[in-house]
Write a protein that binds this DNA or RNA. Structure first.
Lengths: 256, 256
DNA sequence: GTGTTGTTGAAACGACTGTTTTAATCGATT
DNA sequence: AATCGATTAAAACAGTCGTTTCAACAACAC
């Protein structure tokens, strides 16, 4: 593998203490990726990472400045990976072309995006992306803009273009809501994975399951889009109020 | 405060070191709830909790045995709260009655469930439930069964009953998938909240936003349900395969 | 009063944390 | 061969961690 794509000429590889291509720094990054994804930032120690990488405790600081620096580098690398996968679709046709596409092809475009998302985030073997992203949702760090810029924004922008073409004339806010409905359906299976696996009594999602998942999300979403598009041209439907119910007094629930 | 609602008769309050009603143990639980939700288990120290509760470091162990014991008690209490809110709807009519309900009323039932979910998990002021649940999805602990049993299972079971009535004759697996699509749409706004707020450039969801959120999810879902119900009686649609693309070699992406 | 029981306070325990220091090692250039 | 820079290794740094110990304190039973 590595021999097929040889390292950048080592004679030029003098980039100072940070950012060079020593084998140790790679092993550190791999070990850190694995452990940060599995246990999280706080529960992972530099010593754990060093041991798993077969390196010294000081190596982390030498190559990445600090634990947080290493963490940031892990996320940069991981979401650059994700971005490169997403970009395999090639650029989406411009909006004016998209709007003239037959519905069948629009659906195919949407389907491919949904399938890619499932493949990247949900289908086993699980990649570190999902766990790292989920952890960032718990404790946002400086890496959040990376995730948004490399993964979420492009993914949602492409979907928005397709959705806009599927429900022509819909206001931008409506398109955004629909995109979130589609993405939300997919991400549920990743974010609520522990719950789902516990309820399914399985160690991981079966292949059949992820396959049917993609087909269902597309089907369900096409129905949703159709109704949203139809409803817009008929009733404004400004009902539905979220009632504001306070949580009950804590003490009244304490003693068993 | 404490004088307004006097403690349970102190002469009987002899329940052993754990599980009594001392004011300290309550303050500890409140402080722990707040901090565990905000910073997570590993990033929160017993000393932080004790300080915030105005108690000694030893108090935590005295009342709850260990840090993990305190954490578990926090989750038990919080999801008992959630359960009691969800149960305010009163029991759902049995399935055979549900199936004979006019469609309008079924939609009203679904809407109420969606609104409650949004209110409990998403609408500000944010309660600790959401953060604690999200953290459990990152690092499942012994508290997972509590969450599933007290919150997820009943919520999804009720939705399943309503959905089943809305698409009569649909197989159970289809109903389950639709329920997950609905719940997923809602949970997206909680799980991806940091991303959403960053993209919206807002500190929290505006009231308008959560209100429109509920209306949209219901509309979108009704469309999805309609299409899934219709599609079932026409085409089996066994297409859509998740392609299995491996992540690119890490090294090829490293050096900037 | 004495004794008992449930609760709190201060201090200390050993283990582990991220980080720094210092010296040794390696490879290529001069 | 000598020199220099980049890298690695071992040890120590000052803190913090969860937990324990033990003395003091309060309220009650007798």
């Amino acid at each position: 593998m590595a021999s097929a794509a040889p390292r950048p000429v080592p004679t030029v590889a003098r980039l100072g203490p940070h950012g060079d291509h020593g084998a140790t720094s790679d092993r550190l990054l791999d070990a850190a990726t694995e452990l940060f994804a599995r246990r999280g930032f706080h529960a992972t120690s530099i010593r754990d990472i060093a041991e798993r990488a077969g390196a010294n405790v000081a190596a982390g600081h030498y190559h990445y400045g600090s634990k947080k620096g290493l963490y940031l580098q892990v996320l940069r690398q991981q979401f650059a990976n994700v971005r490169s996968i997403v970009d395999r679709h090639g650029p989406l046709p411009p909006t004016r072309v998209l709007c003239r596409l037959p519905r069948r092809e629009l659906i195919a475009l949407l389907t491919r995006r949904v399938e890619t998302m499932i493949e990247v985030m949900i289908a086993p073997p699980l990649q570190p992306h999902g766990a790292l992203m989920l952890r960032e949702m718990c404790d946002p760090t400086d890496a959040m803009p990376i995730i948004v810029h490399e993964f979420i924004r492009p993914q949602m922008a492409e979907m928005a273009a397709i959705v806009a073409a599927l429900i022509p004339g819909a206001p931008a806010a409506t398109v955004q809501r629909c995109v979130r409905s589609i993405v939300g359906q997919v991400l549920f299976y990743r974010f609520a994975m522990p719950v789902m696996l516990l309820m399914l009594a399985k160690p991981s999602y079966p292949q059949r399951f992820t396959r049917e998942m993609a087909a269902h999300v597309v089907e369900f979403s096409l129905g949703g889009l159709a109704r949203v598009a139809r409803g817009r041209s008929r009733a404004p439907a400004p009902r539905a109020r979220v009632r504001r119910v306070r949580a009950p007094n804590r003490r009244s629930l304490r003693g068993r």
